[in-house]
Design a protein around this nucleic acid. Structure first.
Length: 507
RNA sequence: GGCCCCGUCGUCUAGCGGUCUAGGACGUCACCUUCUCAAGGUGAAGAUCGCGGGUUCGAAACCCGCCGGGGUCACCA
């Protein structure tokens, strides 16, 4: 294949995904990770996972593990991370506090940042006043011009302080975004942002800049919601005298009502989709499709490996896509159909095992599937084979296959009768069973011919007889082709069910 | 409200000044296949290219204004 990569980048790309451990793994994190992973590996570079745990209030204990697990599940394993290590560690921001402190103090020493002693109460009141006057809420720079003596005195007395960066007046700050070009900001509307909190933790703004620089990130990609704070980051790079990585702001994923994808209005947890039975190939494909279409094959169905053959940031669409579950479902069905039965079975087992332990709403279903597989793997596989191409999401399996596993079917009289008289149906069912039992060669052809002949003999519509049989054997309106279903069930069980139906009609 | 981003069928998009009476995919509907449901195949409906001005022989594409949607304005990320 022709190499269409920018040769200057080969072996040099370093990307990172930097989630905050604040709960369930977010689909947005998977989305970001996928793009970073693909781009880095396309260029034989490095994909890094950094944990941004600088907000102690929102910190959730297990959620870091869950991030690892999520990336592992999707096969988006980082080359450097808190777990696998790397030369640029630590990869957890809470373990890099001294570094941030050092750089924050350096800025203070250079007059590019300053200590601020304002209480949160004062800040709150200030903002309220500003809003009452219809002015944009911004820090009033109250502490910007304190004398060195006063700062030293208050610090020495142990007074709580934060460090804020100084934003220059009347300056045009240009943010270079790979997708949008130059985005210009007026420094007068940029706030003197806190970069180091009073608890010694950095805010996001300091931490990303310091870490991305120290970790030698070449392409800093993040959600579009960061675009408006990008000028602060540009300024910080300038203050430190560091070269900026390339910036890419990806469009925000949306709910059907176009608002930012949120827990309230949709499902943002990767685990939700996993539990529903979306498979990773489909999920990855879908996430990519949100912003990218394979430019060479023009295909909508592709793997992340295929994506690596041609993906470039510039090809990304910039409009906020709506997270369209219907399309995801279609994709999932496509991917399921593409799989071999054996591979599907592996996915189903993984799903059932995982959901039966950590599932939130499909636990019972998962256990049921597990028990079916355990009881008779061969039987399960045969039944599954007939449903393979009908399957959209894995969690549908219990419902789709349950009729194979019921001892006593609950019949629907209407379905069984197909608008005929009960005694006629009972009689013809008996006769069909009779003839089928006597069949010497049991094949699709002989089986079908027998049924059709029988229908003719009783002046029944073929269709009616088939439906009536279907109802007798499965108690369903829709199933895979009858002959195949009977084959899975076995003649004995199938005929027993016909008898059951006849008895049902006779009572 | 200030600032920033975005704006082609319901949804995702192709389109980078003439090939567009705007192409594809999902969804919807119809038909074919058929023992039902799927899958598959064929086809249909669905977009005054957000609106209004320019520029141009010619604009979905370029410029300006407006409108609409979204994001952001924290010691959250």
């Amino acid at each position: 294949m022709k190499d269409n990569r920018d040769s200057k980048l080969i072996g040099k790309v370093r990307t990172r995904v930097a989630p905050s451990p604040t709960g369930d793994p977010h689909v947005g994190t998977a989305f970001q990770a996928l793009l970073d992973f693909v781009f880095a590996h396309r260029y034989e570079g490095t994909f890094i996972l950094r944990i941004e745990d600088t907000d102690r209030k929102r910190f959730v204990d297990e959620s870091e593990d869950v991030i690892f697990e999520a990336l592992e599940w999707l096969n988006l394993n980082p080359d450097e991370s808190p777990k696998v290590g790397g030369e640029y560690g630590p990869y957890r921001q809470s373990e890099r506090l001294n570094t941030y402190k050092k750089y924050a103090k350096q800025l203070v020493a250079e007059g590019k940042a300053y200590y601020c002693f304002c209480s949160s109460e004062r800040l709150e009141k200030m903002r309220q006043d500003q809003q009452a006057q219809k002015k944009p809420p911004m820090y009033d720079r109250n502490c910007r011009n304190l004398t060195q003596e006063e700062v030293d005195r208050r610090l020495a007395s142990g007074e709580k302080a934060v460090i804020r960066m100084k934003i220059p007046d009347n300056k045009e700050i240009i943010v270079h975004d790979l997708l949008r070009g130059e985005v210009k900001f007026d420094s007068n509307i940029v706030d003197d942002q806190v970069i180091l909190k009073s608890d010694g933790y950095p805010t996001y703004h300091l931490a990303v800049v310091v870490d991305d620089h120290l970790m030698e990130i070449t392409h800093m990609k993040r959600g579009e919601e960061w675009l408006s704070s990008a000028p602060k980051h540009v300024l910080l790079y300038e203050y430190f005298g560091w070269q900026m990585p390339l910036m890419i702001h990806t469009p925000t994923l949306r709910n059907p009502d176009r608002s930012k994808l949120s827990k309230r209005k949709g499902n943002t947890s990767l685990w939700y989709y996993r539990e529903q039975g979306y498979i990773k190939e489909a999920l990855l494909n879908f996430l990519a499709l949100l912003v990218w279409k394979h430019p060479i094959t023009n295909n909508e169905i592709f793997t992340k490996e295929e994506m690596m053959e041609s993906f470039e940031w510039e090809q990304m669409n910039i409009t906020g896509p709506i997270f369209d579950i219907v399309k995801l479902q279609w994709l999932n069905g496509m991917w399921i159909r593409k799989k071999s039965l054996e591979d599907l079975l592996i996915d189903i087992k993984d799903w059932a095992t995982w959901v039966s332990v950590v599932g939130k709403e499909k636990q019972e279903e998962a256990k049921k599937v597990l028990s079916w597989i355990e009881k008779d793997p061969d039987f399960f596989q045969k039944a599954l084979a007939l449903t393979h191409e009908r399957l959209k999401i894995i969690s549908e399996i219990p419902e789709l296959l349950s009729f194979y596993y019921v001892d006593k079917l609950t019949y629907d009289r209407e379905d069984l009768l197909q608008k005929h008289e009960a005694q006629d149906i009972a009689r013809i069912l008996g006769e069909v069973k009779n003839r089928l039992e006597k069949l010497e060669s049991w094949t699709q052809e002989t089986w079908e011919a027998t049924i059709r002949k029988c229908a003719d003999d009783f002046s029944f519509k073929h269709k009616d007889l088939f439906m009536c049989m279907r109802s007798a054997i499965t108690a369903r309106k829709a199933t895979p082709p009858l002959f195949e279903v009977m084959n899975v069930l076995g003649k004995e069980e199938s005929f027993k069910r016909v008898d059951d139906a006849i008895n049902f009609l006779n009572n």
